[in-house]
């Protein structure tokens, strides 16, 4: 198992804020919109430096999506910011008609995704957003794993023409990917080479998968660990090549089992190379109030759950 160092502890939403600020400086067409959560989305620095390109929409997310579609039609590159729940479920039809079906170059940027939002509880802890967004034709879905990857993804999506859903989170989290990395949409990051089992992981659970890989390595199990930061379009070649080598897979994500990364992996394998899969994800349940760490444990999204899933799936080979 390769050694992955923790460089820092930072929230992924701050990576978004830093990326957006850089974009503001490099691309005059980038416009920021926020629905009364500027501080939470870390859009303050962009707002301060580019007040003429920052739009406060108030608590009116449907209008924000429509405004963004109009701005994109006029040639701007709008980045909308609010919590993941209000970025997707609340405005699904607006995104479907005015953004996705209309093919608008809108970047829907969503913080506080998943249970690691913590104490606010299930009203705010959306675990269905990846599924909602990936079902929309033409929508790119990205869930980066740390501050540096989120910053790089934010910068990269401005150069891609078309609708994008960028999902990140609230808690401080280990930073372990390279600063100033180049982010390539749809190109998975191969973290560790192994032959025993494939672990496909996204978002906050990438760090948990790395910790699981270390534990497994001590047990003599070398895992092929791949970070699927782009859930759609899926890096099919990377997934199929890995499973051809290992013969089984575990998926890990902070999302419902239904509609998430695991579901995309299962579909790909079922159609091309049916092999046993175990999924580390929330099993048809809402979250609740608690600390992020407590919730990851209670909802089965911790390191130990990935290790256990590997043991189960290897028995099914």
């Amino acid at each position: 198992m390769v050694k992955i160092e923790i460089l820092d502890q930072k929230d992924t939403r701050s990576g978004f804020g830093a990326g957006l600020l850089e974009l503001g400086r490099s691309n005059p067409n980038v416009v920021g919109l926020c629905a009364d959560l500027t501080g939470s989305l870390k859009m303050d620095a962009f707002k301060k430096e580019f007040p003429e390109r920052f739009i406060q929409t108030g608590i009116a997310e449907a209008n924000m999506i429509g405004l963004a579609a109009g701005l994109a039609t006029g040639g701007k590159i709008p980045f909308t910011g609010t919590f993941a729940n209000f970025s997707t479920g609340r405005v699904y039809d607006q995104i479907r008609q005015s953004v996705a079906y209309s093919g608008k170059n809108v970047k829907i940027c969503a913080s506080h995704a998943g249970v690691t939002l913590g104490e606010d509880g299930a009203t705010h802890q959306i675990l269905e957003d990846i599924g909602l967004m990936k079902m929309l034709p033409g929508m790119v879905v990205i869930n980066p794993c740390d501050y540096n990857q989120t910053k790089a993804a934010t910068i990269a999506i401005a150069d891609y023409v078309g609708p994008v859903y960028l999902r990140f989170g609230r808690p401080k989290w280990p930073v372990f990917t390279a600063p100033d990395q180049k982010f390539e949409i749809g190109k998975a990051w191969h973290i560790n080479q192994g032959n025993a089992v494939s672990i496909f992981c996204t978002g906050h659970l990438v760090w948990k998968a790395i910790k699981a890989g270390e534990i497994l390595a001590e047990m003599g199990i070398e895992a092929d660990i791949i970070n699927i930061h782009t859930i759609k379009p899926l890096d099919k070649d990377a997934v199929l090549a890995s499973v051809a080598k290992t013969g089984c897979a575990v998926t890990a994500e902070e999302h419902q089992m239904n509609g998430g990364l695991g579901d995309s992996i299962c579909q790909l394998l079922a159609l091309n190379n049916p092999r046993p899969v175990e999924m580390v994800a929330v099993n048809d349940s809402f979250g609740e109030s608690g600390t992020p760490d407590q919730l990851l444990v209670k909802y089965g999204l911790d390191t130990v759950n990935i290790v256990d899933a590997v043991k189960r799936v290897m028995k099914r080979k």
Binding site: G66, L67, A69, G70, L71, T73, Q94
Partner: peptide
């Protein structure tokens, strides 16, 4: 119910330009 938001966004882009 979506067109007025889109039209307003277009009007904003015109103002910015």
């Amino acid at each position: 119910g979506q067109g007025l938001s889109v039209a307003t966004g277009l009007a904003l882009s015109k103002r910015m330009n």
